[in-house]
Design a protein around this nucleic acid. Structure first.
Lengths: 232, 232
DNA sequence: ACCGGTTTCAAGCGGGTGTTTGAATGATAC
DNA sequence: GTATCATTCAAACACCCGCTTGAAACCGGT
């Protein structure tokens, strides 16, 4: 049920363990020894199969991210084919981009859940090589979706839209890493209805994203940046 | 111009350096030797003044976060006093909570900028002790703001609102850590108008947040979670 | 049965980590 | 001037890191 055919038993066991542990502890705090212990492999296996810890991380992202972005592009292709020359509706583009991701985040058995939470956190990761790698992996899909959005929202200045897209990514990031984090703001006492969770989260996030995307444009310099607005 | 009176020269130099370096490289990848080198202090000074690396991190958050949350509570106090028994308008509550943060993120001289970007990233940080610490520090301010929101949005189910609040936190997180990350999605070629940036970002984020917060409620189970919706 | 190539393994490498120590230094009070 | 305290410092501590090594184990083909 994994996304990708296993190259070797050991190396895919390592990838799965790494995915889980990186998600749980972060890149730096997760050691190769933790990974190989969980994968029941020798520590030398990592360097044998991947070459280095960095290369392991890149391979880990590649095996899921290419599939994820292919799905996104395929969804966009379908939408654009169906729309002909007319622009695709913004909501549909949003669904094509974020829907695939949310669906992957709901996959608890195949491990897509772990990966999506890792990916979300990684978008703001400081490590240089990760940033460069992600920028490269995302280049095509971002170009396509940006173009589609620009066409679908001709009345929104492009820079304004790029920020809103950025905000949407942030909201999605928190959405998928949220099953834990939502406890921080104190919704923990709710019993989680496991099954409906994914659909409900999807619907919630979509409403929020569309609402934000279609919000009225801010009047420039709306508020003074100093604080002394005394009362309402 | 720092937020807090320096306990000792050395210890506040260490805190400032740590803030900058943690922001740039993350907690694990930043070593005490890097910090003390930048702060022009001996490496033993960290353990002398703070006790451990963990304690340094906690102190680093404490000195900014208490001030930040006091400002938030004071802003909410003013709003509630002005409103009397009537509920405060949602937009004002959003501004009280996120406005202070955005303003702090715009403070490049005092280092508030570094801190806010660090804080944003930390909300999804895996390290256990950080999560616990943050949950404790946020407890009061979250309780107050949640109550205010519930009162201001009686037509929104509380669980629905909590998720939207979570999404808003995500959007803000990306907003403040975005000056870098926005380059990933390719807005880099824009020349950044340094001065107006903070105000413009504030206005943009507010529009987006309010739009998302006030979006129509999702009809439950809006979409099938399987993917075979063939075309538009 | 023997071989060539792939994979696993225990052990070890150089180096960096957070933390500790005990002496040197500085400042303050009597 | 000397005793007292807080602070700084160089050096070392024990430990763990990512990575390498060279030999052992496995395995299909002939």
């Amino acid at each position: 049920m994994t996304t990708v055919a296993p190259i070797s038993d050991t190396s895919s066991r390592i990838l799965d363990a790494a995915e889980r542990l990186f998600m749980a502890h972060g890149f730096e705090a997760t050691t190769l020894r933790m990974i190989t212990a969980e994968a029941q492999a020798n520590i030398a296996a990592v360097n044998y199969h991947f070459g280095s810890k960095e290369a392991l991380i890149e391979e880990l992202f590649r095996r899921r991210l290419t599939w994820l972005n292919e799905q996104r592009l395929a969804a966009l292709d379908r939408l654009e084919a169906a729309a002909g020359d007319a622009p695709v509706k913004p909501r549909q583009i949003v669904e094509a981009f974020f829907g695939v991701a949310i669906r992957m985040a709901a996959d608890t058995e195949g491990g897509g859940c772990n990966f999506m939470r890792l990916l979300s956190r990684t978008y703001t990761e400081p490590a240089e090589f990760v940033k460069n790698f992600l920028a490269e992996e995302y280049a095509e899909v971002l170009a396509r979706f940006k173009a589609a959005f620009f066409k679908a929202l001709p009345d929104v200045p492009q820079e304004e839209f790029l920020w809103r897209f950025h905000f949407m990514l942030g909201a999605m990031s928190y959405a998928v890493s949220g099953a834990d984090a939502i406890n921080v703001i104190g919704a923990g006492q709710r019993d989680r209805d496991q099954a409906g969770d994914a659909d409900a989260l999807y619907a919630r996030l979509m409403s929020f994203l569309i609402g934000g995307l279609r919000a009225p444009l801010p009047e420039r310099a709306a508020k003074p940046s100093k604080k002394p607005r005394k009362a309402a």
